[in-house]
């Protein structure tokens, strides 16, 4: 299928990626080519086939409900680009 500019902008917005006009055009061309190639899957008859997400049929990999020590807060915050002694910092999310 052909990827329209609006669709590129829509997925860019969903992905929180900013594209300028040139980049939108470039992405549009490249995505159209790749998605066009993906469309050959339509040649395959997959009726009645269950979509497979996990390749091996393992199940019930579970953990016991036993408390493990949490990490020191300093380690949790250490790599944050901006933080206080207690928490991460983001621009205010409410007015």
């Amino acid at each position: 299928m052909e990827i329209k500019k609006e669709l590129v902008s829509y997925v860019a917005d969903l992905s929180r990626i900013r594209l300028d006009e040139t980049e939108v055009a470039e992405m549009q061309a490249q995505m159209s080519e790749i998605v066009g190639y993906m469309d050959i899957l339509n040649q395959l008859d997959t009726d009645g086939i269950e979509p497979m997400s996990h390749i091996f049929s393992i199940a019930n990999v579970l953990r016991d409900d036993v408390v493990q020590p949490s990490y020191p807060r300093a380690d949790i915050l250490r790599n944050a680009p901006e933080h206080t002694d207690e928490a991460f910092v983001v621009p205010k999310t409410v007015e």
């Binding site: 493990q68 990490y71 207690e86």
Partner: peptide
């Protein structure tokens, strides 16, 4: 539960911010 759904951190309510984290 005693621990979170996907890790062993405590679910206890009211801890100091970011102290029940891994």
């Amino acid at each position: 539960t005693k621990t979170k759904i996907f890790c062993g951190c405590s679910t206890e309510f009211g801890g100091a911010p970011n102290t029940h984290c891994c």
